[in-house]
């Protein structure tokens, strides 16, 4: 319930009506949306039990490693009821055709694979918020100062998932493990997304806000 309460508010994409409907507009909209969501996700992280008591450098390292996984999990969760479309925001849904036109097809297909996995499992909101916290705590940053403190954070969110599954899905003792086993695909998809947006950044055609740029640079 703590994690449910910490969930960031809804964000709208608000595509600029003055821009022509092309790939530049789509990518500009996505980068702007990502930047605003990142600000909210930093506020969200601070609400996780134990996160704020980590050193500031360790807080930064976890976020620098996990930010894209967190963004993608949110899109995935919001897309569970959509048909082969990704719901980036309530006012910004992208289907496969649009993804193709925007050069996002590879990423789109990878994210849809996650959507199908979680849809088949019937991913619940409680599980989604806990997985997001696990992705942050388990981000495998190479330069953590206080490994034990990060381990405590991991244990705390891992235990939350196990408790939830024990109470709500006692008939499927492997459900927590099944959820954890989806994380490699999330990591892989996130790496693809970071790579894609780094190439977009190098093209220099899409305006990007500073926080988004900062985090992209942390991964290069």
């Amino acid at each position: 319930s703590h994690l449910l309460g910490a969930e960031p508010e809804k964000v709208y994409a608000m595509p600029d009506p003055a821009l022509p409907d092309d790939d530049i507009k789509a990518l500009t909209t996505l980068c702007d949306l990502a930047d605003r969501e990142l600000v909210l996700n930093i506020g969200w992280a601070k609400h996780l039990p134990g996160f704020s008591s980590l050193s500031l450098p360790d807080q930064m390292r976890l976020l620098q490693s996990a930010w894209m996984e967190i963004l993608i999990l949110r899109v995935v969760f919001h897309s569970l009821d959509a048909q082969d479309s990704l719901v980036f925001a309530e006012d910004y849904v992208m289907d496969t055709e649009q993804a193709k036109r925007t050069g996002l097809l590879e990423l789109h297909v990878a994210i849809l694979q996650l959507v199908r996995k979680y849809r088949a499992m019937g991913l619940e909101r409680e599980e989604f918020v806990t997985l997001k916290a696990i992705a942050l705590a388990n981000s495998d940053s190479m330069h953590i100062e206080d490994v034990e403190a990060v381990q405590r954070l991991q244990d705390c969110v891992h235990e939350a998932l196990q408790d939830y599954e024990q109470h709500r899905h006692g008939d499927d003792p492997r459900r927590a493990g099944k959820l954890i086993m989806t994380l490699p695909l999330l990591r892989q998809t996130s790496a693809k997304a970071v790579q894609y947006f780094c190439s977009i950044k190098q093209d220099g055609r899409i305006p990007m806000h500073k926080l988004f740029l900062e985090l992209l640079e942390a991964n290069t």
């Binding site: 930093i42 601070k46 500031l56 930064m60 976020l63 500073k210 926080l211 900062e214």
Partner: peptide, 15 residues
Amino acid sequence: KEKHKILHRLLQNST
């Protein structure tokens, strides 16, 4: 750290 000043600032804010 200088490279990541926005992240740093947002984490320091007490919101």
